[in-house]
Amino acid sequence: MLRWFRRRPRKGRSGGGSGAGRRGWSAQDKTHLESFARTRRGVEGFVEPRTAVTDMTLLLVASDGEWTRRRVPDAAFAHEFANKLGVPSYDAQVVGYPQRMRDWTSRQAAAQKDILGKAGEAST
C-alpha cells in the first residue's frame, strides 16, 4: 500500500481546517511590517482576504508604490495592527489596489529585465 500522499499534521500547526502548511503570524512578520511602515512615507494598509491558496494578509503600500505583505490572523487584527502603526487601512476587496503599487511593480520588472538583458549582452 502506497502512502506517499497521506497528510500528516505539521509541527506547530494550530487548529484544523484546510491549508496544510499554512503559517500564522510571527514575530518576524510583525517586525517586518513595523520596519516598513516606520521607514517609508505615506504608508497605507490593505487587508487582503483569505483565498484557496493564501492566508489573509496585510499589504502595506508606501507613497512611491513600494509594497510588502505578510500573513495576519484575521481582518480585525490587521486593521488594529495598522492603526497601532498609525497607518490607515482598507479592505482590498472593497477599494482595490492603488495605481502607484502597480506602477512601482512595473518599474521593478522593467529594471530587472534591463539588468538581465545587459548581463546577457556582456556574456556574448
Rank of each mutant, 00 (worst) to 15 (best):
G96N: 04
Q93Y: 04
D91L: 15
T105E: 07
A82S: 13
Y90Q: 07
A92V: 09
K84N: 12
F81A: 13
T105V: 14
G86N: 02
L85T: 06
P98H: 05
K84G: 11
K113T: 09
K113N: 02
I115F: 06
G86E: 03
Q99F: 07
Q112K: 10
M101D: 03
Q112F: 05
P98S: 03
L116K: 07
Q108E: 10
K118M: 11
R102I: 14
K118H: 10
D103E: 15
G117K: 03
G96W: 00
D103Y: 03
A92E: 13
L85Y: 08
Q93G: 10
A110H: 00
A111K: 12
P88W: 05
Q108H: 01
I115A: 05
Q99L: 15
R107S: 04
A92T: 06
I115L: 10
V95I: 12
R102K: 12
D103A: 12
S106R: 10
G117Q: 03
V95P: 01
D103R: 07
L85I: 07
A92R: 13
V94H: 01
N83V: 12
Q108T: 04
S89D: 08
L85G: 03
W104Y: 13
A119Q: 14
A110Y: 00
A92F: 07
A119G: 02
Q108W: 06
K113V: 07
Y97G: 00
L116N: 09
A119F: 09
L85R: 05
R102E: 12
F81C: 13
D103V: 10
